[in-house]
Design a protein around this nucleic acid. Sequence first.
DNA 1: CTGAAAGCGCTTACAG
DNA 2: CTGAAAGCGCTTACAG
Lengths: 337, 337
Amino acid sequence: MPVTRLADVARAARVGTSTASRVLNGDPTISIRADTRERIQREAQRLNYSPNWFARGLKLARTATFGMVMPNLAYPVNAEIIRGAERAAAAAGYVLVLVDAEEFLRAGDAFQRLLQERRVDGLLVASAPSTTRLPDELRGLPFVLVNRRAPRLGTSVTVDDAAGMRLAVEHLVELGHRRIAHIAGPRDADTARRRLAGFRAAMRDAGLAVETHFVAEASFEEAAGFQAMERLLDGRPRPTAVAIWSLAAAIGAVAAARRRGLKLPEELSVVAFHDAPIAAYLDPPLTTIRMPLRELGERSVQCLLTLVEGGATPSIVIRTPPALVLRESTAPPRRRR
Amino acid sequence: MPVTRLADVARAARVGTSTASRVLNGDPTISIRADTRERIQREAQRLNYSPNWFARGLKLARTATFGMVMPNLAYPVNAEIIRGAERAAAAAGYVLVLVDAEEFLRAGDAFQRLLQERRVDGLLVASAPSTTRLPDELRGLPFVLVNRRAPRLGTSVTVDDAAGMRLAVEHLVELGHRRIAHIAGPRDADTARRRLAGFRAAMRDAGLAVETHFVAEASFEEAAGFQAMERLLDGRPRPTAVAIWSLAAAIGAVAAARRRGLKLPEELSVVAFHDAPIAAYLDPPLTTIRMPLRELGERSVQCLLTLVEGGATPSIVIRTPPALVLRESTAPPRRRR
DNA sequence: CTGAAAGCGCTTACAG
DNA sequence: CTGAAAGCGCTTACAG
């Protein structure tokens, strides 16, 4: 494969490489005869020229690449954040490179090199628990925290988790529920803490008590949701409804309720935080809270862009209102039982 | 951030850059006094040196990076392939960079540049339909098709889809089913065709007929599985069991059966191709066929590695036997009804 | 045993 | 209006 170099284009267009470079990069300070410019562009096209990325990167110390560190690539909810980020990055001429967080955090491994060798201009760090220490190699590299707030660490972009969970509670209250429980996420996940706070605030505003045994903690996975629901159902009085911090945990939780022989939604209403296509095909189809995740991805990239260009940017909370996706896992509580 | 260059290390160790380079890269042809070597290594360590990736890439025309084009990042099944590939790549000193197939195939967009600018040494192309044309920019770049067989295109690594589907059918036959249907994938997906072939072969070997209306086609998504199941259930005689080509389609299909009021597994047995944690939490928990997907990822990287090093490699079919994961969506058929 | 020098393919002051 | 030249940070024949 004979690769076309800038010199080839310049020769073909009968100009110097500097002129070719400036035309092809749209240098605004250049003044050049229209026909020369066209000749250069035509030849570049004809020879199918594209600049050698390494030569350019070496010269400019700039990669036009962002890395995105994502835990749980398998979680359908994350796909939407990724998609948003990819679009925004592409629009700005950047390539987005995805990195599995688990691999990323393993010290000494290949991904550390992404940073150490400055192969990316900036990093989007998504959804890691607050306790995670960012690798030292990150020093000096612009990054933004996606869906995670940690003021001491740096700029972050998050959605309004509390508002989302409030919406869930309000829906349940409106249906007539009073004994509403919450399956919360781990304490070290700030998203989880905000959802819990939103839950408590909404309950307070509705004049409802949150008994201690109405909050169960579950990590992200189905299995944890399953166990948390079992604990909830062991308590007395039993809740008539539960708002769950993640879709995966909700799927596990619903399985636990079913296993106990509870009829959903008649005997127990469930609403899950985050929506995904699969929610519509569960038994029962899950009522969910849809968050502006694509926007989350887009805005995160925009923040990173200004950081990379040397600007400063405050942390952002996306206030686009969450939406209730009404399906069949919520209903008015049974009267007495 | 003052970045350490090779020259800094060389100066600190009081050697030339060529010597430093050779020592740090473990050049086997070098002969050097042990203490000099140690001095160089010590200084590199102390100054926290890591080579500039662009300079090296420019010189060597080699990136130590593989790209992996993956459709449907959200599909939990893919996560396992990715994980396997990442591990194998890291073990060989390569970074694996994930690219969303949808973005990838959009012409003229940022990801084309990954190829055109030779930012990766090779490409893993996963699961695209057979009709997809690979972009022209791919010319000359080593690539392997993952989970897709297309001899005219190039080397591929696949699993034994037919054996997997055969296992599903045999399980159903053993339970006593005779009217077994199949929800197949799109005809343009070669994985789907092989699963269909495996289905037919296993049915034939069991002496069972496959009536035309016992094969329904569904794309990858839940919604398509839902519709395919409806078509299957509209036919007469009705199947007592169905083997489904993808987990997502199976989730949709089960929802359709449930919507019709069918009791699973008593009135209808279902087995899904591919396993994932979520399968255990569905209603009923899904019996699935577990394929060696991690191995698929690993072997694909190994193939790409030999390709990149200039070797030739035949296409591979991984013969590791698939496993039946027995859960609660399969049972003997009801007698008469 | 070790180092000076060329060159990978760009961009960009600088000089006409 | 345009081009020659330096230099980004490496690696590697080549010469001692």
